[in-house]
Simulated assay, not measured.
Amino acid sequence: MKIISTKARLHRNSEQIRIRRHQLRASGLKRNVEHLRRLEIVRLNKPILVPAPKVFILNDDRHRDSIIFFLRELERNLDAGLKVKIDFTDTIKLHPCGTLYMMANLDNLLVRFPGVISCKLPKDNIVEQLFKHLGLLSKLGRSSGLAVTADNVVNWHYATGSDATTSAFKALLFQHSEAMGGVLVRSNLYDCMSEAVTNTKKHAYPKESEFLNNWWMFSQARDDILQVAICDLGIGIPKSLLDKPKMEDYLRKLFMIGRQSSHDKTLIKLASSTSRSSTGLEYRGKGLPQMLDFIKNQDEGGFRAQSGAGSYTYNAFSKKDKAVTHRQSIKGTLVQWTLKLKSE
């Protein structure tokens, strides 16, 4: 083993100190440059550019992370008093779950920060057509010369509301009445959607809320597949269950240790379960069990509920379910149904 002399050791330590000082100065300079850049943006009253994700989907963690970080960055800049321009240039794919969640959050930000959010148009023609079709571009003060003609755009339908009346999504659902072929299927799905909206009004929002007390809904019928998604930005399923006094003892036994976020998936599965024998508690009314039962009675299709850091999925074809803990939490609750449309 080589013995290092005191002189060499002191020289090495002083060199490390010098390098660290240089790093700290560079870091401080970078922070100062960023601060000056922001001051200049404020002085010139120019918007700060915030890049949007390439893909809007909540089901896998990589893309989920990018959506959450994007929305946080938007809110952080708006809270700092800056104008914001969303850069959709590189956005190339829109899934119902991620797109609906983004639309809901943007609606809230547009109410809280009126007149200071704009956008750059996407390069992708399909993405631009869909943003135009959903009314997002007009909300952000942009127009588009593209005609909305793409098959995977015109079949999307969008509705939002702040009450539990059914007229808005009733019209949305019956856009697909011919493709769905069957009064029973239409009626059952309509009941599920109605129950989801009722749950939003009964359970999702506290009396004092900084958010719009809204629900948002998508549907799309294409290639013999019907997709429906409904979203709110309320307290979420886990907190809704934990706030119920009759559930307190049961849940305390269930979750003696561990992080709260890891419990979210179990709470969502519990809220979706039709079996009350394990708890003997009427804690959820019809709600999610009714929505899940509807899919369980189908030969194909799926059900997914997402809230907090958890998600619960059921596959009607394989008859299997799965509960997952995600890295990032979402606000509120997002429920999706996928149905195979039965032709005559």
Rank of each mutant, 00 (worst) to 15 (best):
S27E: 15
L109I: 05
G115F: 10
L267P: 11
A316T: 12
K239I: 12
L270C: 05
K320P: 02
A323Y: 02
R37T: 15
Q306R: 09
H326Q: 07
A305V: 15
E282A: 10
G161A: 10
M256F: 03
H133A: 09
L281E: 15
S66T: 15
L24M: 13
Q290H: 09
S329F: 01
E208M: 08
N77E: 14
N125Y: 00
L184D: 12
N213C: 09
W156S: 00
V153W: 04
D65H: 12
K2G: 07
M102K: 02
A305S: 13
L334S: 06
G310V: 07
G301T: 13
N13Q: 14
L292S: 10
Q290W: 03
E210S: 13
K322Y: 14
R37W: 01
R21F: 07
S273C: 12
R252W: 00
L281V: 12
A8V: 05
R62C: 01
R9D: 01
Y312V: 07
A196D: 02
D163G: 12
T198P: 00
L172F: 01
F211C: 11
I295C: 09
R327W: 00
R25S: 10
I268T: 06
F255L: 07
I257W: 12
K170W: 08
G332A: 08
I268R: 04
L29M: 11
Y250P: 00
N125H: 05
M193D: 03
